[in-house]
């Protein structure tokens, strides 16, 4: 597993696609999860993980558990997620729960990942 985090519009997916341009890649869109991950591609990329988490929470589902179990079954996934935690903690409970869940999930994915990168201005900084 690999993890790429960074703010919105920093070029995270673009960076990953360029890095693996010699491989066949399939992008699984977080807004459409869960989708079937069947396919012959070398590399599978789960983009916009934060959107998947947001959708799961809004349906009242245990997002943390669902995402981590999915990744347990797909340990070779490349995960891309927005940094959403560098702001004021929102007063609305569902908003703070969302940030809380994204943060906790990222910590656990980072632990399991062979590499973690932060993307800023399209540039990658290796964190792990």
């Amino acid at each position: 597993m690999e993890l790429y985090i960074g703010g919105i519009a920093q070029g995270k997916l673009n960076y990953v696609l360029r890095k693996y341009e010699t491989y066949s890649c399939r992008v699984l869109e977080g807004a459409e999860m869960p989708v079937s991950e069947e396919g012959e591609e070398d590399i599978k990329i789960l983009d916009h993980l934060h959107v998947w988490i947001k959708n799961l929470l809004s349906e009242g589902l245990p997002a943390e558990q669902i995402v981590l179990e999915y990744l347990k079954v797909h340990p070779d996934m490349i995960v891309i997620c927005d940094e959403v935690g560098n702001g004021i903690v929102p007063i609305l409970q569902e908003e703070s729960e969302y940030r809380e869940t994204v943060g906790r999930v990222l910590i656990q994915i980072a632990e399991k990942s062979e590499g973690v990168w932060r993307i800023l201005c399209g540039l990658a900084e290796k964190l792990k």
């Binding site: 960074g6 519009a9 920093q10 927005d82 959403v84 702001g87």
Partner: peptide, 28 residues
């Protein structure tokens, strides 16, 4: 760096944030 607070602002602000993101990437 205005990209990391996770807030969904109204559409015109989101468009501005994405514009600044693209400018930053091209200039970087």
């Amino acid at each position: 760096n205005v990209f990391e607070d996770g807030i969904s602002y109204d559409a015109s602000v989101m468009e501005y944030i994405r514009l600044l993101g693209r400018l930053n990437r091209r200039l970087a």
